[in-house]
Amino acid sequence: MTPSQHKKETAGKTLKRGVFLTLGALLVAVALEVFLVPNHIIDGGVVGVSIISSYLFPLPLSAFLLILNIPFLIFGYKQIGKTFTISTLYSVSVLALGVHFIHGSPTVTSDFLLAAVFGGIILGLGVGLILRYNGSLDGTEILAIILTRRLPFSVGEIIMFFNIFILGSAGFVFGWDKAMYSLIAYFIAFKTIDLVLEGLDESKAVTIISNNAQDIAEAIMARLGRGVTYLYGKGGFSGEEKEILYVCRHPP
């Protein structure tokens, strides 16, 4: 492949990633402003905190989405890597703009259950697309990726721990019935994310055997923000012990 062909391929992948990150962020904006927020149903993570904050303080939701994510993005840039952080910053910015322009549009339904179900589905589709193309909408995910290196918990377990408190706080602000509807929306979104990431992937994981396993693992965690599991094996002919990397893979 010539340098010009490589540049074109790289530009094509970047453009494709940008298109799907934009689509995902706009879907989340629709889910929030058309279904969830008007019915006082929240999501987890920074988005959930932003919804509660915009209800309690005289600043729009779009402002809180940017303000509350900035510290995580700065921290993530130093700890995780440039590509993942820039993709996250772009996704959050598009979400904030989408929320700003969609705000005040007519709600589709005032039925809390319908809002939770359809809002959760659209939210999950949007977040799933963003995660699939190596971005994020939530600073707590960046924090969880960093903490999982130091704590004996997975990224999902750490995020769930945060969200228990965030979704629980909705009960004090909006009422406990709204907190329960928020849990329904969160569960549906979670399952929809799984469908987007796993149901559409041709390959769900990759196994890497190399003499430079440590360097490869550090590059994957730093540049892609993906967790890596070490397995240990032995060569059948040589008898040499090998480090094997197992990486959950959601390629664009």
Results as ranks from 00 to 15, higher is better:
residue 32 L to T: 00
residue 231 L to F: 14
residue 65 L to F: 06
residue 125 L to D: 03
residue 106 P to W: 00
residue 4 S to W: 15
residue 135 G to D: 06
residue 176 W to R: 11
residue 238 S to T: 13
residue 80 I to K: 03
residue 161 F to D: 12
residue 155 V to R: 07
residue 154 S to R: 12
residue 9 E to D: 12
residue 207 T to K: 13
residue 157 E to C: 12
residue 126 G to Q: 02
residue 88 T to A: 14
residue 122 I to M: 10
residue 47 V to Y: 00
residue 50 S to T: 06
residue 97 L to M: 13
residue 116 A to K: 05
residue 172 F to K: 12
residue 149 R to Y: 05
residue 37 V to W: 00
residue 242 K to Q: 13
residue 53 S to H: 01
residue 132 R to G: 05
residue 229 T to I: 13
residue 203 S to E: 15
residue 32 L to C: 00
residue 209 I to M: 14
residue 231 L to T: 09
residue 31 A to D: 01
residue 229 T to G: 07
residue 72 F to V: 04
residue 28 V to R: 01
residue 236 G to P: 04
residue 41 I to M: 02
residue 165 F to S: 13
residue 183 L to H: 05
residue 215 D to Q: 14
residue 87 S to V: 00
residue 44 G to I: 02
residue 99 V to S: 05
residue 203 S to F: 13
residue 209 I to D: 11
residue 91 S to L: 07
residue 149 R to D: 13
residue 212 N to I: 00
residue 39 N to M: 02
residue 226 R to D: 10
residue 98 G to I: 06
residue 200 L to N: 11
residue 128 G to M: 10
residue 213 A to V: 08
residue 61 L to W: 03
residue 147 L to F: 14
residue 77 Y to P: 04
residue 129 L to P: 05
residue 1 M to I: 09
residue 161 F to T: 15
residue 183 L to T: 03
residue 162 F to M: 11
residue 198 E to W: 12
residue 175 G to P: 07
residue 79 Q to C: 11
residue 245 L to Q: 07
residue 211 N to F: 00
residue 51 I to H: 01
residue 21 L to E: 02
residue 76 G to H: 07
residue 222 A to H: 11
residue 192 T to Q: 09
residue 54 S to I: 03
residue 105 S to F: 14
residue 162 F to V: 08
residue 92 V to G: 02
residue 70 I to N: 08
residue 238 S to D: 05
